[in-house]
């Protein structure tokens, strides 16, 4: 199936700014689904609120555009009630880890099979450039006009600690790697987290003088490196990308099936 057949073309044009990285994420995501050969009816995309979350409206899957931060909670209901569905949950960094932080760690802890894609542009774009829990110390935002004194999360470390059984990081510059990772994450039988560094030239880039969208992607190219590379050993400041965790642990819905089995036995 052609990529455009996965889109709801009547809902275009999309609402993202010129240069926004989210379109690249959409592209990689659709390629992943296409390469996996899933039918559109097998996929539910659940999103929250923010620029990133509008992605669910543009795809021709079952799409659930929910409340700010709550996508994983809605997704938990979808998945647990109908485990044969593949659930993909695109979220922004503020959506997933500020207002949705609690749902994020608990979904990871349960190891319920779904793919959380954290589109990390380090800013609240939709409301106009306020600092997020991923902006980082020293960033400038419309709510940090002097400087941001909040320290940021490391999404990979947080996900690992919370119990996610698949954790990866990539960027919009590395679109092909992103497709590969997303494919693996979607197939993973457990809670998978994929952090994607995605540029917001309109707010984060402009406020922090990072140049154009292309400049920001160039930055991802120069400042990231594959996990365990020689370059990382030489320059510890580089951010690693690739798959950090790939574990095979009992999945939540399968575990609940065992609860049902026990309960039914006790009854008869």
């Amino acid at each position: 199936m052609a990529i455009k057949d996965y889109l709801r073309q009547k809902f275009f044009p999309h609402m993202w700014c010129p240069g926004c990285g989210h379109g690249i994420v959409l592209n990689s995501m659709l390629r992943a689904v296409e390469e996996l050969g899933f039918s559109k009816n097998e996929i539910v995309m659940v999103s929250g609120i923010g620029c990133s979350s509008r992605i669910s409206g543009y795809v021709d899957f079952h799409s659930l555009h929910t409340l700010h931060g709550r996508a994983l909670a809605f997704a938990t209901g979808v998945k647990m009630s109908q485990p044969e569905l593949n659930v993909i949950v695109p979220m922004g960094d503020g959506d997933a880890l500020a207002i949705g932080g609690n749902h994020f760690i608990h979904a990871a802890r349960r190891n319920i099979a779904m793919t959380a894609v954290v589109m990390n542009n380090r800013i609240y774009g939709m409301t106009g450039g306020q600092y997020s829990p991923l902006s980082g110390y020293g960033a400038i935002a419309t709510t940090a006009p002097y400087t941001n004194i909040d320290h940021d999360f490391d999404i990979v470390e947080l996900s690992k600690a919370a119990g996610a059984t698949y954790v990866a990081r990539t960027t919009t510059y590395h679109a092909q790697q992103m497709t590969k990772i997303l494919k693996e994450a979607i197939l993973h039988d457990g809670f998978s987290v994929v952090e994607v560094l995605t540029q917001c030239p309109t707010y984060f880039g402009r406020k922090n003088k990072l140049g154009s969208a292309a400049d920001m992607m160039e930055y991802y190219k120069k400042n990231t490196t594959p996990i365990g590379s020689k370059a990382k050993a030489e320059n510890p400041d580089l951010l690693e990308r690739g798959v950090f965790v790939r574990k095979d642990l009992p999945e939540y819905c399968s575990e609940y099936d065992k609860v049902i089995e026990t309960a039914m036995k006790g009854r008869s």
Partner: peptide, 11 residues
């Protein structure tokens, strides 16, 4: 999250 989960399951 409880009310969100039941909405997801209702769908």
């Amino acid at each position: 999250s409880s009310i969100c989960a039941i909405i997801g399951a209702s769908l």
